[in-house]
Simulated assay, not measured.
Amino acid sequence: MLTTALALILAHLLADYPLQNSWIIANKKRPEAMAAHIGVVFLLTLLALRAEILPALAITGAHLVIDVIKTHAAPNRLWAYLGDQLAHFATIGAVLWVWPELGLLWPEATLWVQYLLAISAGLILCVFAGGPAVGLLMADFSEIQHVGLPAAGRMIGVLERALIYLMVMAGQPAGIGFLIAAKSILRFDTVSKDQRASEYVIIGTLASFGWALLISYGTLSLITFTGITPPHLESASQLP
């Protein structure tokens, strides 16, 4: 069951983040954009379920309903974004409960397969899902103007969350302190001249780092407590 659950979670995260391009996101209220997204969801879910049509249709149908509600009825706020993702995960859990035989779909799965599924899902959740979460949190401070490269802040967030995830999974969380120090030094000239910009950077940085640490250690805990760490990696992925 664990392998099937991880495969479904990874399929969902791939469809919602790396494979949902900017055109789909910007035009989600248009039927063709929603259809393109739902088509990707169905194909990846079908792959994760090894061509089991009915449960794949159930997950895809629920995904469509949840996305329609979020797109047309829910406010563009952090709580709605988090609620949307929790609803998708709950749908996966419900389908596995209704069809318990789905737990037998991957009998040949090794510890390596489960481990790679878990760290891949954690990486997407940490790096890509964190961007919208932090952005929505910072929406209340949108009046603060910043002069810089277009989308540079978003790329910095992606890179810092990826580095934090890598450090935690490699068993080297002390490196996060150097990352904080480096960012503080690089941002010093900007924040020292403008208190509002300083506060904005601090809030955004803490939110991004907090998200990354939460997801990284959550993934590490899942791997540790389910016992899916390959033997020769156990020493590198121990919880501190």
Results as ranks from 00 to 15, higher is better:
Leu104Thr: 12
Phe42Tyr: 13
Thr219Gln: 08
Thr91Val: 14
Ala48Tyr: 02
Leu186Ile: 14
Ala62Met: 10
Ala87Ile: 00
Tyr17Trp: 14
Pro230Val: 08
Leu78His: 05
Leu116Ala: 09
Glu101Gln: 13
Leu47Ser: 08
His88Ser: 02
Ala94Gly: 10
Leu102Arg: 00
Leu239Arg: 03
Glu199Asn: 08
Ile180Glu: 06
Glu52Lys: 13
Ala11Gln: 01
Val98Pro: 02
Ile53Asn: 06
Arg187Gln: 11
Ile176Val: 09
Ala5His: 05
Ile25Asn: 08
Ser235Met: 15
Ala87Cys: 06
Leu49Trp: 07
Glu32Tyr: 10
Leu163Asn: 08
Leu125Gly: 15
Leu10Met: 00
Leu54Asp: 11
Met138Lys: 10
Glu52Phe: 11
Gln20Ser: 01
Ala5Thr: 11
Tyr165Leu: 12
Arg30Lys: 14
Ile25Val: 15
Pro230Phe: 05
Phe178Ala: 15
Arg154Ala: 15
Met1Arg: 03
Glu52Cys: 06
Leu43Asn: 07
Gly218Lys: 05
Leu105Ala: 02
Ala212Met: 01
Leu96Thr: 04
His72Lys: 11
Ile144Lys: 06
His72Phe: 15
Glu32Trp: 13
Tyr115Asp: 08
Phe141Glu: 14
Thr224Cys: 09
Ile124Val: 15
Arg77Ser: 14
Asp84Thr: 02
Pro107Ala: 00
Trp106Arg: 02
Gly135Ile: 03
Ile203Tyr: 09
Asp16Leu: 01
Met138Tyr: 04
Ser192Gly: 04
Met138Asn: 02
Ser221Val: 14
Leu149Val: 11
Leu163Arg: 08
Phe141Tyr: 15
Leu86Thr: 09
Tyr165Met: 09
Ala170Glu: 14
Ala182Gly: 09
Ser184Asn: 12
Leu104Asn: 11
Glu234Thr: 14
Leu54Thr: 15
Leu14Asp: 01
Ile119Asp: 02
Leu149Glu: 09
Thr190Cys: 03
Glu143Ala: 13
Arg187Ala: 06
Asn76His: 11
Ile24Arg: 14
Glu160Thr: 13
Ala90His: 08
Leu78Gln: 03
Ala207Lys: 00
Glu143Leu: 13
Ile185Asp: 06
Ile223Phe: 07
Ala139Asp: 14
